[in-house]
């Protein structure tokens, strides 16, 4: 209706085939190996968490799935078909929507213009095709209400909102337009406890409604609350790949913190 994106309804995808799958994917920047041998998949109603410390290659991984960069090795499969995403637009057309750490919002533009940026609603005939401003303002406001955010002024520049509010606008936007696979790049990193809770609840609910979610984070506690599947990256390689059933929070935290390294550290700092 309002968007030409996500035109493949969820029912048409055969069950069992992951929405997005990476097979032995690798990426080099010049002679720096950013990623190597990455295997990962996310299906309908699943949350796949990608964990890793700074510089582990999380951002590169997102950029490949989001169409900002292209992989050099391996295969990227969407609905079982091999694809190469040459632009974010192409990823969006496959129903892959991304919420970046930097949120991809334009600070000086009003909230509703940011909400619809790149997928504006228009009516009329060219050259008189114009934005459906009232409809966009109402829709943006309604969608944000659903996230539990009530903005006094939908015309306010988005740069004037708080970090949590901006995050919610960006996620609401991705859900509104993407609807099949949602990639979240550290959505809780800059948030307080309460606002993180809102975001996590939203992630869980999104998955229940049938979306596939790739949740990138460096917080094992947040990951463990919502994840079905955990992938741990370290220096561009996968060091852990397991299901929720096969791991405890303590194990995940230990793995995340570097296992042996943490033990050494605990020993050193013993008081």
């Amino acid at each position: 209706m309002t968007s030409e994106l996500a035109d493949a309804p969820l029912e048409e995808i055969p069950t069992g085939v992951p929405l997005v799958q990476l097979k032995d994917v690798g990426k080099q920047y010049g002679h720096i190996i950013a990623l190597h041998g990455i295997n990962l998949k996310v299906g309908k109603g699943e949350v796949t968490c990608v964990l890793g410390d700074n510089g582990a290659g999380k951002s590169t991984l997102i950029k490949i799935v989001a169409g900002r960069h292209q992989h050099d090795e391996g295969q990227l499969l969407v609905d079982g078909q091999e694809v190469r995403l040459s632009s974010p637009r192409e990823a969006l057309n496959h129903g892959i929507a991304t919420v970046y750490q930097d949120l991809a919002v334009v600070p000086l533009m009003p909230v509703w213009r940011n909400f619809f940026l790149g997928s504006e609603m228009v009516d009329g005939f060219w050259p008189f095709r114009k934005l459906s401003i009232d409809q966009m303002r109402t829709t943006a406001k309604d969608e944000l209400h659903k996230m539990g955010i009530d903005l006094p002024d939908i015309d306010a520049p988005i740069g004037t909102l708080s970090g949590g509010q901006r995050q919610c606008v960006a996620i609401a936007r991705a859900v509104f337009f993407g609807a099949r696979v949602l990639i979240l790049d550290e959505p809780t990193a800059a948030l307080g406890v309460k606002q993180s809770g809102v975001v996590l609840r939203y992630i869980s609910a999104s998955a229940k409604s049938g979306l596939g979610v790739i949740f990138i984070t460096h917080n094992p506690h947040h990951a463990y609350m919502v994840g079905n599947h955990f992938v741990l990256l370290n220096r561009g390689r996968m060091t852990l790949d397991c299901k929720y059933e096969d791991i405890t929070l303590d194990q995940l935290t230990t793995e995340m913190a570097g296992g042996d390294e943490l033990q050494t550290l605990t020993h050193e700092l013993k008081r």
Partner: peptide, 21 residues
Amino acid sequence: TKVGNWIYAVGGDAESARAVG
């Protein structure tokens, strides 16, 4: 217009604008 929205966006933050298509 749509193009007007894009003009503000590419000037405000080109990388963000590209990321949303």
